[in-house]
Amino acid sequence: MQEIRCPWCGPRVQTEFEYYCDDSLLTEVWGSEAVQQNLDRVFLRSNHLGYHQEIWQHTHGCRGWLRVLRHNLTHEIKESQPLGSNPVVDKDGRMQS
């Protein structure tokens, strides 16, 4: 069970999080007719050995999103960055104003 640092709540156990998708999914050209480019983004992702940019959600916590730079062999987590807007609840579960 890995330990992931939530940018809002601090280090938390992996089971509080859910892996959502690969970072490359963020690059869709919305509405464009660049069909092949968007299809490659969905179906032809790199599965290399080494560091991956992963999108995780602190599902059973603040529900915030984070981008995690993680090694898929050693499970070393180099960094975890906040992604998108602030989560709606803080680490104690209170709604953010």
Partner: peptide, 13 residues
């Protein structure tokens, strides 16, 4: 919920 949250928080803020 997760799908919609992802879209609103991350893809289309």
């Amino acid at each position: 919920l997760q799908h919609l949250e992802f879209l609103l928080d991350v893809l289309w803020p």
